[in-house]
Write a protein that binds this DNA or RNA. Structure first.
Lengths: 115, 115
DNA sequence: TGGTTGGTTAAGCATATACTTTAGTATCGT
DNA sequence: ACGATACTAAAGTATATGCTTAACCAACCA
């Protein structure tokens, strides 16, 4: 993976970590400062900052610093992107099963009409 | 991450790699053998097998070997799991924005009624 | 029976991830 | 001005990831 990762790579990668999902779960309930986000987590502040950096580089989270406090908020557009990718695959798969089922049905019907 | 990863960890981690997403994209169009899956990819067979192992340990893909050929198929349930997690967060966020908007609206109304 | 096909195992290697501790640098309150 | 607060930067470390190549095994097929 020496070529630069796509937005989808970054988004799924960001969501693959339980700490980062916890951060997202917190942020959907409203914006929060870095130390506010770090408080319930049992790891160092720099560790939390690194997780936030991952979330931010994926586009899932944006943040702005005013004075000495950085306020983070989630960006739902990126969540949608990931959701859409999964949904499209699931739909494709469901559609296939549906067509397959219908096809097997026609086979049974033809069988019934036989002889 | 020395404690064992959750199903959600494994699923998002599996989807974070473009090669593995390509495998999923192929498999939603129907089951395939290992070498069939490897053929369009420009990497060694063992590399593809390792990606398949990741997909399988996440539950996104199941496979069975008959004779000397292993046939892989996707398991949509695991796709749903990931999709649901995202969807719930997105809903939560949307709901919050909605409530916030309504609240601001009431403030404006009260403001209008003032003095 | 012996070669080809389809898959598997093992080992090795470069880079990436998830932390840590230590040492900062700007605010902000008094 | 001075200390506390909120964050940041840098470096180090252990483990994980994404490959590779070189064997190897177990059908199948002539």
């Amino acid at each position: 993976m020496l070529n630069q990762p796509s937005p989808l790579d970054l988004t799924f990668q960001a969501l693959a970590d339980p700490t980062r999902r916890a951060l997202v779960e917190r942020l959907v309930r409203g914006p929060a400062s870095v130390s506010e986000l770090a408080q319930p987590l049992k790891m160092s502040l720099p560790a939390v900052m690194q997780h936030l950096a991952v979330l931010e580089s994926s586009g899932l989270v944006r943040s702005e610093k005013v004075g000495r406090v950085r306020t983070c908020r989630i960006d739902a557009a990126q969540l949608s992107l990931a959701e859409q990718w999964i949904n499209q695959r699931r739909m494709e798969w469901a559609g296939r099963l549906d067509r397959l089922g219908r096809y097997l049905e026609t086979l049974k019907d033809e069988d019934g009409e036989e002889s």
